[in-house]
Design a protein around this nucleic acid. Structure first.
Length: 661
DNA sequence: GAGTTTGAAACT
DNA sequence: CAGTTTCAAACTC
């Protein structure tokens, strides 16, 4: 931290604006640069300053990895704790109902909650610009959710311009430290898109300022910005998701610049953190850092483009290895990993993911997407364009309302936003042997209340969550395939399926041997539909730590122990009722495996043998969620002999405002 | 795509 | 806490 502070004094203090303007160099530059002085002056300062004053995590050597991120986290955490959640700091937010009622109004941040140095947002902020509206929150809420969908990269410049204007208007001797602070807020929490603008500005600065002797401002910036954006990507997830198309430009794996831009726009679909980020900050940073990583991974994976899909399909294994490699890199060099993940090869995952969680959409008509009825809201994500909701308030521009509503709901039920499917406390102890004996290591938080579905349809939350019913359930005629309320476990069913699978596999093997025999084709064709499962299973079997014993219904993200928005993951996970139990069990094996690892280190779960399922499940439209996409690589990870558990958490814990069990 | 069913969420 | 209503997803046709 010494360096940054030092830099502040060195750069910020000494360089007086007037002096700078009067300098011959400045004049000369002005004459050359198309950039107008009024902008070139103010903006560069914040930036240059920022580049030295921001937390180490942002501007320190790119070599920093985890610590790097932690710093970042602390930074943001710190900020959030002070600036915080508007709900807590804003008196006018005490009335949730009111907040909800005034949804369309209360978008401006109370000046009172800001630091004196905070940049005041023009009251006449762009009307139609969601970006403009949101930017007002930037300095107040570190984890400010996504800007409008179409925020232009110019916004950053605008903000900075405002800052400059403001400072200039008030003081001839700007409070650089404050300004820097504000600027850093913008840089850190602004729209990822802004990073582009920043980069441009930085470049300009680099080319025009002698102060830029500092080497590689580029690289050092890129990563930091990226890192910063990650923190709230979850909140921006939806917006960014739809910016992806624009980023589908062909990416060169070697072109870090392009990769960066792409990644900066990518979003972690995962993450239904929109409202949780704030609360999340209070958690131990380790956990958050982990989420961060997973988020990164996802960003990369989901940033896939369709362009590679075909080729990837043909080289599934290769892709997996790539993913494996990438993930490995992620653990050691997040920033780098992210860049890597931007590679075209991983794009495919994104594509597939696009249809899943990341594109989770609701169809609310009356709830305004502010009730748990709304899947998006319940999952902690903002509604997105594809949603068919009416009068939706679950959008970034209504952040306050969303937060208020959320808080209100949580006041009623603290666990309202907690994962519906929770992992039993003893599940952790369930290793291999026990796993199969227990219907499921995860259970629905409250249990279901099914009357007619027999817990065999997704009406049943337990079933939907891929967990068996438990004593908590009040269901009638429970036949939950993942475990019945009466205690009958899946073990039996698994045994059956196992047997069946084996039979199928055997026949398949036999077929393979008889490949040369044309006559066999007849039978083979009839058996084809069945091959999928066997194949899939085979792959799973390859997993070093995979155990057939663990073959269980797919556990949910909840297995991670962290509260994650179960909704998204779970629902998506088993969205397709057509998915055979076998498949589910396979997926389960993944998670169990990861769990078995026992290590409590950052985990990146990658579930989703989506590709496999897709191919193997003839009648399934969409077998696995987008998140799971990455899972295709997940299985890869599973193979890792290193034993490192990589859990790509599609939905980082869904930190609720209140501690959850 | 429209209509029905279902069960969670919300309300009383 | 129980009963009822509202709601939107899941499902069916």
């Amino acid at each position: 931290m010494d360096t940054p502070q030092k830099s502040i004094t060195q750069i910020g203090t000494p360089i007086s604006k007037s002096k700078f303007e009067d300098s011959p160099v400045f004049n000369y530059i002005n004459s050359l640069s198309p950039i107008r002085p009024v902008k070139s002056i103010p903006i560069p300062h914040p930036f240059s300053s920022l580049s030295f004053t921001s937390p180490p995590s942002v501007f320190t050597s790119p070599h920093l990895t985890s610590s790097h991120k932690e710093s970042r986290f602390f930074k943001t955490h710190h900020s959030s704790s002070h600036l915080t959640n508007p709900l807590e700091s804003r008196p006018d937010s005490t009335s949730n109902e009111q907040a909800v009622a005034e949804t369309t109004k209360d978008f401006n941040i109370d000046a009172s909650t800001r630091d004196e140095s905070s940049i005041e947002v023009a009251p006449d902020d762009p009307v139609a610009s969601p970006c403009g509206e949101d930017t007002t929150d930037l300095s107040l809420v570190p984890y400010s959710p996504p800007r409008g969908e179409n925020c232009s990269s110019d916004d950053a410049g605008m903000e900075l311009q405002k800052m400059y204007d403001n400072v200039q208007g008030k003081n001839q001797t700007p409070d650089w430290e404050s300004l820097i602070s504000d600027a850093s807020e913008l840089l850190i929490f602004g729209s990822p898109n802004d990073s582009e603008a920043f980069r441009c500005l930085m470049m300009q600065r680099a080319s025009t300022s002698e102060a830029m002797t500092n080497n590689e401002p580029e690289s050092s910036d890129a990563i930091p910005y990226e890192a910063a954006s990650i923190l709230h990507r979850g909140m921006r997830r939806r917006c960014l998701d739809f910016e992806m198309p624009g980023n589908k430009q062909t990416l060169s794996e070697n072109n870090t610049t392009v990769a960066f831009e792409s990644s900066s726009r990518c979003v972690v679909p995962s993450i239904g953190l929109h409202l949780n980020a704030i609360a999340m900050s209070s958690k131990d940073c380790k956990t958050n850092v982990t989420h961060d990583y997973s988020g990164k991974i996802q960003v990369g994976l989901q940033g896939s483009t369709s362009t590679m899909q075909e080729s990837l399909d043909q080289t599934e294994n290769e892709t997996r290895e790539d993913a494996d490699q990438v993930l490995e890199d992620v653990l050691e060099e997040p920033a780098l990993a992210e860049l890597n993940l931007s590679s075209p090869k991983k794009k495919r995952l994104k594509l597939e993911a696009g249809e899943g969680e990341s594109c989770k959409r609701c169809n609310c008509k009356k709830s305004k997407c502010l009730k748990l009825y709304c899947e998006c809201f319940a999952a902690g994500v903002y509604c997105i364009e594809p949603c068919s909701c009416v009068d939706c308030f679950n959008k970034p521009i209504h952040e306050d309302t969303v937060l208020a509503t959320r808080k209100q709901i949580e006041s009623r039920n603290p666990l309202a936003f907690a994962p519906k499917v929770i992992r039993s406390s003893d599940s952790v102890q369930e290793t291999g042997d026990d796993a199969s004996k227990t219907p499921a290591s995860a259970r629905h938080k409250r249990g279901c209340n099914c009357k007619k579905s027999n817990c065999l349809k997704k009406y049943c939350e337990c079933y939907q969550g891929g967990v068996g019913c438990s004593i908590n359930c009040r269901c009638e005629g429970c036949k939950n395939a993942f475990g019945r309320k009466d205690g009958s476990s899946v073990a039996d069913m698994e045994a059956e399926l196992e047997e069946e699978s084996e039979t199928i596999e055997r026949s398949r093997t036999a077929q393979t041997h008889q490949n040369t025999e044309v006559l066999v084709n007849k039978e083979a064709s009839s058996a084809l539909p069945m091959t999928p499962m066997p194949i899939y299973r085979q792959q799973l079997v390859q997993l070093p730590f995979s155990s057939s014993k663990n073959m269980m219904p797919p556990p949910q993200q909840s297995l991670l122990g962290g509260g994650s928005s179960s909704a998204i993951f779970n629902s998506q996970y088993l969205r397709n009722p057509d998915i055979t139990l076998t498949q589910s069990r396979d997926e389960k094996s993944f998670e169990t495996v990861a769990e078995d690892g026992g290590e409590e280190m950052p985990e990146i779960i990658i579930h989703s043998p989506k590709a496999n399922i897709k191919t193997l499940s003839p009648n399934s439209k969409r077998v696995s969620p987008p998140n799971l996409d990455s899972s295709s690589s997940g299985s890869i990870l599973g193979r890792r002999s290193s034993g490192r558990k990589l859990i790509l958490q599609s939905i980082p814990s869904f930190p609720s405002l209140t501690p959850q069990n």
